[in-house]
Nucleic acid binder design. Structure first.
Lengths: 191, 191
DNA sequence: TCGGTGTTAGACAGGTCCGTCTAGCACGAT
DNA sequence: ATCGTGCTAGACGGACCTGTCTAACACCGA
């Protein structure tokens, strides 16, 4: 049994982190709360004190992953300038991510696969994440001087999504690099 | 209760079709065999007479979906010529598919999300499907006269994957059309 | 009409699911 | 040191999971 939290309030963090890892590895429905609690060394009531339900835990886990992703993404493209350079830096960021040994695909894609109902809280979290990511691409595309920046952004977004999916499913770790190459062609044609 | 099969051997087909529909709507782990049997109006032993396990049913369901997809895909691109026209016809095929009211995303992407282990039979079925699809793109790219057909195929494949994913997750039904526009740019640059 | 074959119904078993319960721990303030 | 409070442990409940069992059904050829 893992040592119990030495500080108050650590349990919640431990819970979310453990859940995040297990959901990522095995999926949401496949992982029961008993397994999360066992792995985290915590008890049932600890979970239900902090969260109303397993679903609430999932939503919070996705929120944490979303925040971490945004921060990592922002840091990765911070060095680049605006416009074209920033767009290309995004593909570098995706490549760096997909090459991490811990990369197991987008947790949001997995969540979307398991929770397809439009009004489901989990699906809403997925859509919010996707909308933000597309917004980032659109913002950078707008500063690239492209004739039709929204069209360019939409095309590049498809490349990003495709690269992440291909890297996750087939394990193709060079997908992001090839997506970048395609992006360079699309950007050049869009100016 | 649904009327029992009037012909012998209809049960197996009914089973696979019902499972396919439910897996597509709710996911693999979320759908129990009891639900499938209830919906199909069949009994437990009927399932376990035809299949060794739920997993075997999943694999057969994916095989049927794979076969149907290949047939539909082949029919959709049959009219087009070879090379560039065939590549573009593929995007039309994807668009037609994603615009079907019954479109709920790629069942293979969902399967990959729930069964991530490399050696899992379900994952193997997913990889076989993806490998075939990429092979189709590569074959057409090879006949397009591109300087580096494999590179072109890889880039177009990412667009296909991205379009299907975007259509499934965000419900963006014009994703495939934009993927086609991007593909035209990439093909033009690859010649 | 009768027997044999292949399929089906529904109960059952053992495990796990999510969520709730009571009881009691460990800590901060006084 | 004692009290009060926030948090936690582990048992429990009812529902559901996958897979197995017995018993009997419907249909075939003879």
């Amino acid at each position: 049994m893992a040592q119990r939290g030495t500080k108050r309030g650590n349990a919640r963090v431990q819970l979310v982190d453990t859940a995040l890892d297990l959901f990522d590895r095995h999926g949401f429905h496949a992982v029961g709360i008993d397994r999360i609690l066992s792995e985290a060394g915590l008890a049932k009531m600890t979970l239900y004190h902090h969260f109303d339900s397993k679903e609430a835990l999932i939503v919070e886990a996705l929120a944490k992953r979303d925040a971490a992703f945004r921060a990592q993404f922002a840091a990765a493209i911070a060095g680049a300038g605006a416009g074209r350079a920033e767009l290309l830096a995004m593909f570098d960021a995706i490549e760096a991510w997909t090459r991490e040994p811990s990369f197991r695909g987008s947790l949001f894609d997995k969540a979307a696969a398991e929770y397809g109902e439009k009004d489901h809280p989990v699906k809403k979290a997925v859509l919010a994440h996707k909308a933000w990511l597309f917004g980032e691409v659109r913002r950078a595309a707008a500063a690239s001087g492209a004739a039709d920046p929204v069209k360019l952004a939409a095309e590049l977004f498809l490349l990003v999504e495709g690269a992440v999916l291909a890297a996750a499913v087939t394990g193709d770790r060079s997908a992001a690099r090839r997506a970048k190459a395609a992006a360079e062609t699309l950007i050049a044609a869009a100016l």
